[in-house]
Amino acid sequence: MITVIDQAVQARLIASVPETSAIRASLRYSRNDPFAVRVSFPPVASLDGSEVEWTFGRELLAGGLRGPAGHGDVHLWPYGPDRTVLELHAPEGMAMVQFDTSDLRRFLQRTYELVPQGCESRHLELDEDLAALLRDV
């Protein structure tokens, strides 16, 4: 049974100049963390030359496909009928990345097939997580 979804996508890093830079990114969803999605960017997309991963709510992704969504460090919004913008804020600065909306919708649909919307809490392993937390204290 599948427990993790990985999907490679094409993204466009939006720079302060009119040009954009195409980069490969990876979307990831795991049944073990059913409320979250992850997006990873290759080292060429970062200031320090290391891979960068951001984690945010699956609900935020769904909301950002319909209209402006997000608070704090992660924001998403539609950009015309075919693109979605992901805006990321960190102490080092801010980045804006465009994705094909169809790629994000396809990924989101795959996550719903793995863990249906509204059923996320059934996949949490609270006893194991609590035991691990208490071991670390």
Rank of each mutant, 00 (worst) to 15 (best):
V39Q: 11
H75L: 11
A22K: 06
S121C: 04
A95W: 02
E120F: 11
P68W: 04
V4S: 05
E59R: 15
V17S: 14
E19T: 09
P42E: 10
L61M: 04
E113P: 07
G72I: 06
A69G: 05
L86R: 01
E120K: 13
V44M: 12
L88W: 03
F107Y: 02
S30Y: 12
Y29N: 03
H71R: 12
L60Q: 13
T20L: 00
L130A: 14
D103R: 05
M94P: 00
P42M: 09
L47V: 05
I23G: 05
R58D: 02
L61R: 03
D103N: 09
W77K: 05
R12A: 10
L13F: 06
A90E: 14
D136G: 07
W77P: 00
A36H: 01
R28E: 06
D136A: 15
F41R: 09
I14H: 02
D127W: 08
V44H: 09
E87T: 14
V39K: 14
D82N: 08
T111K: 00
I2G: 00
M96Q: 13
A45E: 09
P116D: 08
I5N: 07
A22S: 14
T101F: 01
E51H: 08
F107I: 06
G80H: 00
L134D: 09
E51W: 02
A25C: 11
A25D: 04
M94A: 11
G49S: 03
S121F: 13
P34R: 14
E120W: 12
Q117N: 08
P34M: 12
A11T: 06
E59C: 11
G70A: 04
G57V: 00
